[in-house]
Amino acid sequence: MNQKNQVSKDTLPDRARYDLHMHSTASDGMNTPKELVRLAAERGLKGMALTDHDTVAGVQEAAEEAELVGLEFVPGIEISTRAGEKDIHVLGYFVNPADGLFLERLAGLRGIRDQRNDLILQRLRELGVDITLDEVKDRGGRPLKPGESVGRPHMADVLVRKGYAVDLRDAFDRYLAEGAAAYVTPPRITPAQAADWIREAGGVPVLAHPGLYGDDELVREVIEAAKVIGIEVRHPDHDAAGEERYREIANEYELITTAGSDYHGVRQGVVFHGELGAYVVGEGVVNALRSARFPTESRSHSDR
């Protein structure tokens, strides 16, 4: 999490600005897809990508609103994987949100996410922390819609609301972060599998926020195994030294360098990760990602 509230004034090779990492209420964000598009337009962005966790349920709403306000929209996703005993996230850009096989695969991932939620809640109960799945799914009065998912930020909200934690940071540090008292994760797909799924859905795989993994050797292993096209160099949880390190790795592997705020909205008065529009790329990066797409035929359930 990060409390940066000011949009940076980065000098880019072109003046068009794109934020390529954010989350809506379709996963663990606080804003609807439509609200994110409006916020991006208000902040002078030329375009944005919606990258919800393991779901594309918000993509259509965001795309329709982007067309209305004249914003360029990139359909995206962030897939949860596991490698080297670490949770690794793989971003996918320009995926086909109507690809039937992709949708089936994502439904399976959300099933794994549901298993994880149950295991975390069980661990919390063992620790004397009484929160229920219904409270988590309620999401402050906005129940789940089909294809949407809940995650640890929703649990953190409940922990704070019921007095088990002072704020979101405390909730994660004490209970929910990797290595914390209630953290648990079931078996997940590998980054290479996620990258293959993204490619097969017509998209471009990019390694998300490598600095969060705390293991640059693992980052290299993932890059080589998954054959990602890009790496997220600028992110709210990367310091200047980290950015420079990942630029060097990008150059070494000839990867596209991307950036994104990882905006989840405002919880308990705190911006979760970075402020929307604070970490951006120019139009050239978006065009490079678009050009890197693998051609694929659209699938539907009737095709299978």
Rank of each mutant, 00 (worst) to 15 (best):
A225V: 06
G70L: 04
I231D: 02
E42F: 09
A250N: 03
G265P: 01
M30V: 11
R220Q: 08
I231S: 05
D216S: 14
N2Y: 14
V69I: 11
K145T: 04
L39M: 13
G147M: 11
G242P: 03
I120M: 12
L168A: 00
L68F: 09
T51D: 01
S300C: 10
G44Q: 08
L45R: 00
L168G: 14
M1H: 14
T55E: 07
V95R: 07
F172T: 03
H273Q: 09
M30Q: 14
A98I: 07
D237G: 11
P191G: 00
R152H: 09
Y246A: 04
E67A: 15
Q60M: 11
R161A: 13
R43E: 11
G282A: 03
A192F: 08
G76Q: 03
V136F: 01
G140R: 11
N96W: 07
R267W: 12
V271T: 14
D14N: 15
I120D: 02
V95G: 02
E297Q: 13
G141T: 12
K46F: 05
D114L: 05
D138H: 10
G58L: 07
L109Q: 15
G269M: 01
N96A: 08
V286T: 00
D52C: 06
K145P: 09
L119V: 07
D167T: 01
R139P: 08
V228H: 06
F102C: 01
E283K: 13
K9F: 11
V184E: 13
E254D: 15
A180P: 08
V184K: 02
L71S: 07
E65W: 08
R139S: 08
F272L: 13
A177R: 13
A177P: 02
A182Y: 03
G100F: 00
E254Y: 06
Y279M: 03
Q6S: 13
G58N: 09
G58K: 05
Q60T: 14
L276G: 03
S291R: 15
A225G: 07
P187V: 02
G58S: 05
A181T: 02
K86T: 02
A156P: 04
W197R: 05
Q193I: 04
N251C: 03
G284M: 06
A107L: 10
E65S: 01
G230C: 03
I198D: 02
T258I: 09
Q122H: 12
S298E: 14
V204Q: 05
L91S: 02
